[in-house]
């Protein structure tokens, strides 16, 4: 088991290296640089700035420099957030994203699985259709529509919850962002679970269990759930990585300080180091969660063996 994990982690290194290389050069081919402002800089000021940030060196030297620093855990200074290094920016904002993302993930996974299983048990009933319609709604409404509507209704009209901001990070501040972030994923989990649950319930061993007169609840929870969860778990990896590393939409609409927006802001502002930093972060998350998913697989499905 430990060997499996280690091997997987080792094999992730080249992946991350390729990601870093690709992003580095892609970023640099894009037109414009971090210092192209609406108000242009004096040419001599621009020169000094480029020198200060090593942008006057050949690209390959800059690349080597970046890799070397990266190996030492240094993500470099941010080009646009001049008062911070990229590592500081990420360190400051990641906890917010993690908290928000963890709640959203929790809501999405447990809510989705519960709803999906319930719908599967009542397949083709009115409840099934109603629940799944609501779930589909979660998938079809973009969260940049859902989020401002929630904020408008609950903050501006009803005045129950704050319109935005992290505030004290309490339930009041988190409720709307968590819902906005969780709903689309919840819907996906619900659909996946429903599908696999229906299938599992038809499987022989479940039918047998039911035929023996075991209560439905016991059959579902003890026997069916385990098998039915496998497809949902495979979806968990990418979703967890995506949700935990923040969402530019939710952060923008609710004015929250997560890492999600750095990614987009960095790309649009040509903050080379910030973009690279977030890219590395997201890649690491993806790798780690894919690994976790593989382990979970093995736990849920005895047929899967560590290679």
């Amino acid at each position: 088991m430990i060997r499996f994990v280690l091997r997987r982690l080792m094999s992730a290194l080249p992946t991350i290296f390729i990601v870093v290389t690709l992003s580095f050069f892609l970023m640099r081919v894009a037109p414009g640089g971090p210092f192209n402002l609406e108000r242009p800089l004096e040419p001599q000021v621009l020169e000094s700035l480029k020198r200060a940030f090593l942008l006057d060196r050949p690209l390959i030297v800059q690349y080597g420099h970046y890799l070397w620093n990266l190996l030492h855990g240094d993500l470099g200074p941010s080009f646009i957030y001049r008062d911070f290094t990229v590592a500081e920016l990420i360190a400051k904002s990641l906890p917010y994203s993690l908290t928000l993302g963890a709640w959203a993930l929790l809501v999405a996974v447990f809510g989705g699985i519960a709803i999906g299983s319930y719908a599967a048990l009542k397949q083709n009933s009115f409840v099934d259709y109603a629940v799944m319609s609501v779930a589909s709604f979660g998938i079809t409404v973009p969260n940049f529509v859902l989020a401002p509507i929630l904020s408008f209704v609950f903050a501006v009209v009803l005045r129950w919850l704050p319109a935005g901001g992290w505030g004290d990070g309490g339930p009041a501040n988190l409720l709307l962002p968590v819902i906005s972030l969780a709903l689309p994923q919840l819907a996906v989990f619900a659909r996946i679970t429903r599908g696999s649950m229906i299938e599992t319930l038809r499987a022989d061993h479940i039918r047998t269990a039911r035929a023996y007169g075991l209560p439905t609840r016991v059959v579902v929870i003890v026997h069916a759930m385990r098998a039915a969860l496998v497809p949902a778990v495979s979806y968990l990896g990418p979703v967890a990585a995506a949700v935990l590393t923040g969402s530019v939409v939710v952060e923008t609409v609710y004015a929250l300080p997560g890492v999600g927006r750095y990614f987009v802001l960095g790309a649009l502002n040509r903050d080379y180091t910030l973009v690279m930093g977030t890219v590395v972060l997201i890649s690491v998350f993806i790798v780690v969660f894919n690994l976790i998913v593989d382990i979970l697989y093995a736990v849920l499905d005895p047929r899967v063996r560590y290679e």
Binding site: P148, S151, A155, P162, G164, T252, A255
Partner: peptide, 17 residues
Amino acid sequence: NPSEDQATTERMFEAGE
């Protein structure tokens, strides 16, 4: 509050934040 999303800050102003 450094948010630059105008729709957001308008809402926050309306909500008295």
